[in-house]
Each structure stands twice: as structure tokens, then as C-alpha cells.
């Protein structure tokens, strides 16, 4: 197993959660608010000064995608309880991937289930297969462009694991009645 390690460039928990809930923090928001507050004031305009733009932590897309995958599994299991036995182990593997990528337990607890856009269990599994295929490609790309050897190694393991979920899910789908 890959030794868990902190990812140095991982975004803060707050940022990750905001992004997960669709809230995007704009780095210029504070500057805009300051400028608006100055408008209409009797005070003279302040001298032009150079302000360093605030740098928002870059979201780790790989981790966000991993968290979204966990949400997709939770949503599918919530709607199609008959898949719980088959899918729980795979969902747990994604939790292990997310931890490896820097997720905290609070991050994992904050994940909300994503309801499947499917009319039956077979379609829901087909959606998960598509998600896993995309995830395996994304992790592969991330490993190919990473610089830290330990992160490359971890992402390669994760890419392999997620690639193996595709045939596993296909096997599960074969045994499911629509």
C-alpha cells in the first residue's frame, strides 16, 4: 500500500468544501468590496498604491474528482440498495484514494450523495462505469504531469485501481436485472 503522505500543494479544507458545494471564492472580491466602500464617501480618493493580489489556493482537481466519485457511489447506493453489497467495497477504495490525495476525515464526512441520473440499476452502473473510465484517464494524466516521484507513484496506483473498477463494474452489471 502507498504510504499516506501530506500533499504540499493541497488546498485548505475550507476551499475544498466551498468548491464541492459550488461556491467559488474570487480572489479579487476583497479588492472590489474595498473600492465600492470608498465610492460616495466624502474622504479624498486614496493614492494609488500597489496591492499584491490575494492568491487563492489552487484547487486540487484530482482530489475534487475523487470526492465527487465517492458522492456518486453514495448516491447510487442510496437509490439502489440492492447494489450496496457490490459497491461499498469500491466506494471504500475511493475513500482510501482521497485520503492518499490529502483529504481529511472532515472532507469525507462532508460529501453529499449525488443522485444517479438513471432510470434503473443497470443504467446507474453504466454511469459509474463512465465515471470510473474518466477518472482513470484523469489520474493517468495527473501522474504523467506530476513532478514529485511519490505523488507520481501514488497517482499511478490510483489510476490502476480505477481502471480495474471498469471490468469489475461490468461484471456487477451483468448480474443485475434492469
Amino acid at each position: 500500500m502507498v504510504t499516506p503522505r501530506a500533499i504540499g500543494d493541497a488546498p485548505s479544507d475550507v476551499t475544498r468544501r466551498r468548491l464541492l458545494h459550488g461556491v467559488v471564492a474570487l480572489p479579487t472580491l476583497g479588492l472590489a468590496a474595498t473600492a465600492l466602500a470608498a465610492c460616495g464617501s466624502d474622504e479624498p480618493a486614496p493614492e494609488a498604491i500597489e496591492i499584491e493580489p490575494s492568491v487563492a489556493p489552487q484547487p486540487d482537481e484530482t482530489l475534487l474528482d475523487e470526492l465527487a466519485l465517492i458522492g456518486a457511489y453514495a448516491g447510487t447506493i442510496a437509490v439502489y440498495d440492492q447494489l450496496r453489497g457490490s459497491l461499498t467495497a469500491i466506494a471504500d477504495q475511493h475513500r482510501a484514494h482521497a485520503r492518499e490525495l490529502g483529504a481529511t476525515e472532515a472532507d469525507l464526512e462532508a460529501i453529499e450523495p449525488i443522485p444517479p441520473n438513471a432510470g434503473n440499476a443497470k443504467q446507474a452502473l453504466a454511469n459509474l462505469i463512465t465515471r470510473e473510465r474518466n477518472a482513470a484517464g484523469q489520474r493517468s494524466d495527473a501522474a504523467a504531469s506530476a513532478e514529485d516521484p511519490e505523488r507520481i507513484r501514488a497517482l499511478t496506483f490510483i489510476a490502476a485501481s480505477e481502471s480495474s473498477h471498469v471490468p469489475e463494474l461490468k461484471d456487477i452489471r451483468k448480474g443485475v436485472n434492469a
Binding site: M1, V2, A89, I90, D92, Q93, H94, A96, H97, E100, A136, S140, A143, A144, T156, F157, I158, A159, A160, S161, S163, S164, H165, V166, P167, E168, D171
Partner: peptide, 21 residues
């Protein structure tokens, strides 16, 4: 990376359960 992925898929084809790592 592609070889690692193919190897993991092969393991499933031979009857193994998937693993996180």
C-alpha cells in the same frame, strides 16, 4: 502508467477483487 492500468485490469479478468492500491 498504462501498463500498470492494464495489469490491474488483468487481475480482475483472472478473478481478483479490485484493490485501492
Amino acid at each position: 502508467i498504462a501498463s500498470a492500468q492494464a495489469s490491474a485490469r488483468d487481475a480482475i479478468q483472472w478473478g481478483a477483487a479490485s484493490q485501492a492500491f
